[in-house]
Write a protein that binds this DNA or RNA. Structure first.
Lengths: 300, 300
DNA sequence: CGATCTTCATCGGAAAATCCGATCCAAGGC
DNA sequence: GCCTTGGATCGGATTTTCCGATGAAGATCG
């Protein structure tokens, strides 16, 4: 019985597939097959039922899985506790919402890389929804997203900070007189991100509170493009004000005094609790610190 | 971090020596050295202080040791729980007191070998004292001994059964009239085993209760030789009556009606609790069953 | 009902890791 | 100051691991 075999076994059990587990571990399917066979042979017991399309655990496999979880959790904890972070190896797949990517992701990555130089970070920038999906599916280890609602169950959520969103528009935009409530903005073109973005949800909530369906058009799934469209005077966009502070200074964008003000978006680092995720929790902690250190903080 | 490395690390920590750990694991010193170096490198931390003659744990090494204990205990438990006993491999060093060796050791070994054919049993027959010493020193994994007193602390003791001891002598021996108390046997030659044997302790206790120092002479450390001397009429020997039942039937030995009757000796399988000793506990269980099944049982 | 696709098992050669014996070096004991 | 003891290191042989290709069995679809 080897630790590597237990890890592979756990992936196969979780994903129900040798092939998927292989991809997850940067190995080939034949390697996974050999490892499982070797583990089964060393125990003298069949752990996985391959007769059906979906690989299922046998009763003994179920028993072993709980041991494997416990053992691997201890191993990970030992590595973190007694090991020098600089000696940690492996990879960590991180899903990042775009806003984060635009702001303090570089700082976070460099801080993390300093602490754990041998950990390879696989970054995926994506819409909040996609990040959450992939996190639930186990395809990423950590998701860093902003949420205006509660984080999903079953995940550890490290609060990282929050940032204010505001409706920004070009100064040339013709706008109704304040107070600007949802009804007042009803006929103003609203620049929106794709429906998977958290910003879009925030926007929808704001308008829905006023029982208004705004005239909106979707830009691509990029905050920068939204901002560009807003600068060009094509509409109003809900954007993180801190990130566009220079626009506000220059006057290329102005902030609308809307009522009610949209709630701040709280950002979280989400990861599966326990197990190998202690590396993830370390990243979460670094994310929190590097967010505090960044100019972001002023955005609260 | 590999399981094998943790095992080696634990042996080194326990024995305070690379060389001894190597001997324990059927490996060479260079292999142990490499494994430890590899473990240290993978954690990026120094675990053992080799500067002094006796290898000592560093603080981080102490941390890791507790993890290693926990991890290896889980691994062993997993092996026993989900694994087929027939697939278990490795070795088990067993120290056995002579009486056990003479009676149901063969049955026990064959039962165990049937259940775990790939486990190599290293048997050492010895006096009770020696077996206990080697157990405490960690040089054997299981000790099967008879004790008239409490088993040593810090070891799991599986009670196996008990057997009655009696003073046996040749019918031709000239003996005082009953009741035969310690004082009455004061001048009768007592055949004794070496001072490390449990029987000797039992004998001493019996006489000491009567405040008598018997006239004794030590035979070699063999029950059979003691019995032979007794048969030859050279003295009285304290022997397990069940084992000499045929002598009693034939009349080549007779049992003396002594007062008080010596207490029965209870046999235990002793092993270190937890950890890799779960294999030891399996052997203990088999020892218990095979003792019950043997004719021994009638000896109680 | 048969063709096709997906999925796991197996095989052979290449690459890597492990192990051992021999030797070197440092610390302790006489 | 020599000698013993114990760990580190090196080179070569062995074993293990890995991968890509191929085979076999079940699911899916026309």
């Amino acid at each position: 019985m080897k630790i590597e075999q237990l890890e592979t076994f756990r992936w196969v059990a979780r994903l129900g597939s040798f092939t998927k587990a292989a991809a997850r571990q940067n190995a080939t399917q034949s390697t996974v097959s050999t490892r499982i066979a070797e583990l089964e042979h060393s125990l003298g017991a069949r752990l996985l039922d391959r007769s059906r399309r979906q690989v299922r655990l046998t009763p003994k496999g179920r028993d072993l899985l709980s041991y494997a979880d416990a053992i691997l959790a201890l191993v990970a904890e030992a590595r973190l506790t007694v090991g020098d972070p600089a000696a940690l190896t492996g990879g960590l797949r991180v899903g990042v919402a775009e806003l984060v990517a635009l702001t303090w992701l570089p700082a976070m990555v460099s801080t993390f890389h300093e602490a754990c130089p041998r950990i390879q970070l696989d970054l995926e920038i994506g819409l909040t929804d996609v990040v959450l999906e992939r996190l639930v599916a186990g395809e990423i280890d950590v998701g860093i997203v902003g949420l205006s609602h509660a984080p999903p169950d079953g995940f550890a959520a490290t609060p990282i900070g929050e940032t204010a969103f505001g409706f920004l528009a070009a100064p040339s935009m013709a706008l109704p007189a304040p107070p600007l409530d949802p009804a007042a903005l009803k006929d103003v073109p609203i620049i929106s991100l794709g429906p998977g973005a958290e910003v879009a949800r925030l926007q929808d909530d704001w308008f829905r509170a006023g029982r208004v369906a705004p005239q909106r058009f979707n830009s691509s799934s990029s905050i920068e493009i939204s901002a560009g469209l807003a600068r060009a005077g094509l509409g109003v966009a809900l954007l993180p004000v801190a990130y566009f502070a220079s626009d506000l200074e220059r006057g290329s964008l102005v902030r609308l005094a809307v009522e009610p003000p949209p709630p701040p978006v709280r950002f979280f680092a989400l990861h599966a609790p326990g197990g190998a995720s202690t590396l993830a929790s370390r990243l979460a902690e670094i994310a929190r610190r590097s967010a505090r250190a960044s100019s972001w903080r002023a955005a609260r």
